[in-house]
């Protein structure tokens, strides 16, 4: 589904954000990407739907080469859902309009159809009563659940999560993770950048560990948590699993 081959990316002439990264996500697979901050994990996931350009290598999404200038990027992006660290709901639109906008403008759905789909997904994330509110009236956890519903409304073939719980208060993390776990169990293809090792342990098929722009470890979940091969991954795990 997602193939990342020898990807190189620089910020400016001197800082290399991604160094020869190669990995893949198969259909129905859940892959968790972790690593210390500044390791390039967010950058990597943003390259998958070309929110960040790459300077070397290639990324192929469902058979379409992402970094080909001829690729219709808006169309490609509409097929992959993305959830951001800071939710990024559109603050000037009501929750329902947040859900309907792209369905109508990108997929060309009729308003009633978009609305029906949106409300169904709102119900699924447990927020149907908040449909007429503005994003600022919701808590962080609720906003992030709306953001997930908004991405799902496009009927994506895969979902990308960029630290979806990092900006949340601790008591709100689980409500978002619950939605993600359900999604994973339904067979959604997911690539998730997160520090939530509990989530990884529960639903991930594979775990990728990144450090300083490199993919240091790319292993099945059991192997990764059992005995990471690299020192750096071991150190990282010991630090975040201590508590």
């Amino acid at each position: 589904m997602i193939e990342i081959k020898n990807v190189n990316k620089w910020y400016g002439p001197s800082f290399q954000a991604l160094k020869d990264c190669t990995t893949s996500v198969a259909k129905g697979e859940v892959v968790v990407v972790c690593g210390p901050s500044g390791s390039g994990k967010s950058t990597l996931i943003k390259c998958v739907n070309a929110l960040e350009p790459i300077q070397g290598g290639e990324i192929i999404l469902d058979g379409v080469k992402v970094n080909d200038p001829k690729t219709d990027l808006p169309k490609l992006r509409s097929r992959v859902g993305m959830v951001f660290q800071h939710f990024e709901l559109f603050p000037h639109l009501r929750i329902v309009d947040n859900l309907c906008l792209a369905q109508e403008k990108v997929l060309g759905r009729k308003h009633e159809d978009a609305l029906a789909r949106g409300l169904k997904l709102l119900e699924r994330v447990g927020l149907k009563d908040h449909a007429k509110k503005f994003p600022a009236e919701l808590s962080g956890g609720q906003q992030q659940r709306v953001a997930i519903a908004r991405a799902l409304a496009m009927d994506p073939i895969a979902m990308l999560f960029d630290e979806p719980t990092s900006a949340l208060d601790p008591e709100m993390i689980s409500e978002v993770l619950d939605v993600m776990v359900d999604l994973a169990r339904e067979g959604m293809t997911m690539m998730v950048v997160t520090h939530e090792m509990g989530f990884a342990n529960k639903v991930a098929d594979r775990v990728i560990f990144m450090d300083r722009g490199e993919i240091v470890e790319d292993a099945k979940k059991a192997e990764f948590f059992g005995q990471p091969r690299s020192d750096r991954a071991q150190k990282f795990l010991s630090k975040i699993l201590q508590h």
Binding site: L73, G81, F84, F90, A102
Partner: peptide
Amino acid sequence: AAASALGL
């Protein structure tokens, strides 16, 4: 970025 990610 969020708008682009939705395909706009």
